[in-house]
Simulated assay, not measured.
Amino acid sequence: MSDINIQASVLHGVRDLRTETRSITTPGPDELQISVKSTGICGSDQHYFNHFRNGDILVREPLALGHESSGVVEAVGSNVAGSFKPGDRVAIEVGVACDKCSLCQAGRYNICREMQFRSSAKSFPHFQGTLQSRINHPAKLCYKLSNSVSLDEGALLEPLSVAIHAVRRARTKPGLNVLVLGAGAVGLLTAAMLRVEKAAKITIADIEGRRVNFATQNGFADVGIAVPRTRPKTDAIEDRLAIAQETAKVLTQSNSGGDSSDTLFDVVFECTGVEACVQASIYATKPGGAVMLIGMGTPIQTLPVSAAALREVDLVGVFRYARTYEYGLELLADREKSGLPDISKIATHRFTGFGSVVDAFKMAATPVDDHGNPVLKVVIEF
């Protein structure tokens, strides 16, 4: 099999996406060549698209975005020919770690210092993303989809993995009273995993009421709270923390029906990264509880650390995922047994082909579409 030409959606600058022709070699001995069929747009993709950077990470060369993907095997490397065949439908885990360092050896490869992650500009040369018609990828990071799992669900397995990892890091157990802040895709998937973990009560909150309604109407959460948009009187930290305390009171009173003294949450999953939400999370958590920091927001934030320390509220970081794909596929393959809600509903908007990629990114940047429907996950299909 000789090199072939493929199409790729390549970012050259702020909102400068171009469809280009690239060539792809035959897959290596331990690789698969995959036709990418479904790719979800992630928040980090949007940051790169709108700012040509993601926080402190700057794009330094043309970059194909996309990392939430599934596809169909087209060619198989010589060392994996017995495990995969052309036509297999697979989910793609896009982070390639070194497999040698102490973190990798301990199973925590998600925080490997040598990690190469598709569509991230952190490593250089950049590891090109999945908005390409074909990619070569290590076979050990590709997972066959059962007949009952769609290609779109295979793509959603990537953000679902973030939720799986967060719930594992929280060491949840059945019967907990939990709060999810942020009813976007990751927040909804976190709530879905808390349903699997048999949380006694799942509350989800967001400033966008239509997202909250989606969560409760589709079985992701038991209680939904539309948090009022409020601004501090001044930028002084005292005024900002006062707003966070008021927000925590709204959350806990809605949780109880009045008295907030006994209604703090066992665990809060903070999925926004917004400073005010992280602050409110600390105030809304029980003594001895935990705040799971999932959302990637402003790098430097002012937090009421003493309110956490004096009540032994743990602040636990969550970054991507490790060893989650096989478990996620088990949940998707047998939803009745696992109790996983229908996560395919999170893919609210679909676009087809490379010519629609820019429109897909524009849609992903809006909280609701022209018909007033919430925009949760935009998927591009090929």
Rank of each mutant, 00 (worst) to 15 (best):
E330T: 00
L32N: 04
H126K: 03
N110A: 04
V14D: 09
H12E: 11
Q217I: 04
R323F: 08
S78R: 11
F354H: 08
E238K: 12
I343S: 11
M1E: 13
L11I: 12
T272A: 13
G77N: 09
T263M: 11
L17W: 12
A97E: 01
T272C: 14
A248R: 02
Q33T: 02
L189P: 01
L103P: 07
F124H: 15
T26Q: 07
G184I: 12
A276W: 05
G297S: 13
P228Y: 12
T25Q: 14
N50D: 05
L58A: 11
T190L: 08
E114K: 11
A8Q: 08
K122Y: 05
G55W: 02
L141Y: 15
V379L: 07
V357E: 11
L65F: 01
G66P: 04
E68D: 02
V278Y: 10
T26C: 06
G107T: 08
K37N: 10
A81L: 13
S338F: 07
S344Y: 00
G209C: 10
G209K: 14
A308H: 04
G289W: 04
L160R: 00
A191T: 12
V196F: 09
H67G: 02
C277F: 12
G13I: 13
F351A: 10
P367K: 15
L181V: 11
G372M: 07
Q245G: 08
F269G: 09
S44D: 03
C98H: 06
A8E: 06
E153L: 00
I204Y: 04
C101N: 02
F127S: 10
I204S: 06
R168W: 04
L251D: 03
R169D: 01
L17H: 10
R118V: 09
L17G: 10
C277H: 09
S69Q: 03
L156C: 06
G187A: 11
F354A: 12
V223C: 14
V368Q: 06
V94H: 07
A364P: 05
S120I: 09
L293I: 08
G77H: 06
N110K: 05
D359Y: 03
S338Q: 11
D239K: 03
I6W: 04
A244L: 06
V90P: 00
G353K: 05
N255E: 11
K85L: 01
S83N: 06
L340F: 00
T39M: 10
